[in-house]
Design a protein around this nucleic acid. Structure first.
Lengths: 231, 231
DNA sequence: ACCTGAACACCGTTCAAGT
DNA sequence: ACCTGAACACCGTTCAAGT
């Protein structure tokens, strides 16, 4: 059993753990969470790993492939909470809440995946999450086709919210002041009040936190799905 | 009236129309629609305009600013259809349908804006669209706060759908075959059937077109909003 | 087998100089 | 006033050569 093709791959080299496809992807996901998508370059990641840029190409085909690996590791890191048909409203809310939290732990992951045209959700763990959610909708009485659609819509709601709303609060652009974001109307919706009767009247309202807005979106979803259930 | 500071800016130079901030932004938006976000670089746009890259910097501060101008022109190019509270369900559906079509006419506009952390929707025309939609929700009986939230959720639904669903069909990644996309389950949700009872059973269903999926999402929204109306 | 260093073709952006 | 051409510091990626 000492022929060359069964010999173990060395685990260290020059005092540093040997790279693998997975360790490189994991490092990319870490880097993304710490510095954001713009900073994640082949060169900066190589420097972070104490290696030359060329070395990464022994484990990933190119930058797109690197991001694909990072996305797979990202997806494998979250499990759906238990989903009980008897209390589907609360459990669906918990599913959405926890999935949102997972997305926010890795800001820019979805932005990056979509700007690189990478289709996510191929990891077995995420497939099981999807299957469990379809199962929940099917068990409460939705036809399978609607259960599938409702599952896709749920995931899209969460991903879209993180992408389009949370990203603004979690990483505000340089020119806006963070506390101005929570005022109503928000900075990007301010115009001449005479043309905008309803929008300008929102200035009298209590400002919404992102959490409140998210709860509202999920409430709409829950009510919308409930309305489709057989009576 | 011939003093130097009232003299008209020349409209042509070397047989070519003079650049303006707006014409540069419009060219960027055109270019985006034709070649996609990855091809839109300062250098390629300059070549397209028959000018050196440096010339663009006389009208926009940098690439981010260029994209901001393109986003403003994009927003100014769509008007909400009339929204009548008496038939709010149909009119809300029409709003969503037409807004989706506008987004799809300029693929990558939202992806690009979000990957560059640009907050859109500052153009007066888009502000009026937002105001009209809040107005619709307020007029059918939602409290102003809920009307505002419902408006944000509607726009997020459309933008998220185009971003996360239509972009896949309109510009499929190189490695997937377009007609495989419409099968159920979709390519990125295929796994071992024994672990995925519900997901694998979707293979027996009629495949969903993006339009059908979109209609379903809007139906959920309409029903969810209807459930919040005072009885 | 896996790495480094140098190189290539790109990119955004700036400088100095032209007209 | 507005442009060009050259340059700088980056990027992804590849080549040839090291150990």
């Amino acid at each position: 059993m000492s022929s060359s093709h069964t010999r173990r791959r060395p685990t260290h080299r020059k005092g540093r753990a040997t790279l693998t496809r997975e360790s490189v992807g994991r490092a990319a996901l870490d880097f993304l969470g710490r510095y954001g998508p713009a900073e994640l370059t082949m060169r900066s990641l190589a420097t972070e790993l104490g290696v030359s840029p060329r070395a990464l190409y022994n484990y990933v085909e190119d930058r797109r492939d690197l991001i694909t690996v990072a996305a797979e590791i990202f997806e494998s890191g979250w499990h759906s909470p238990p989903l009980d048909p008897a209390r589907w409203r609360e459990d669906l809310r918990a599913f959405c809440r926890e999935l949102r939290a997972h997305y926010r732990r890795h800001p820019g992951m979805t932005t990056l995946a979509y700007s690189e045209n990478i289709t996510m959700a191929r990891h077995p763990v995420m497939l099981r999450n999807v299957d469990a959610l379809i199962g929940l909708f099917a068990q409460i009485g939705l036809p399978l086709q609607d259960a599938y659609r409702a599952c896709m819509e749920t995931i899209r709601l969460v991903a879209g919210f993180v992408e389009l709303q949370d990203s603004l609060h979690d990483r505000p652009p340089a020119h806006v002041t963070p506390d101005d974001l929570d005022r109503l109307p928000p900075p990007w919706l301010r115009g001449s009040p005479e043309d905008l009767p309803y929008l300008s009247r929102t200035a009298t309202l209590e400002p919404d936190s992102p959490d409140t807005l998210f709860d509202f979106a999920v409430d709409i979803l829950v009510a919308g799905i409930a309305a489709r259930l057989p009576a």
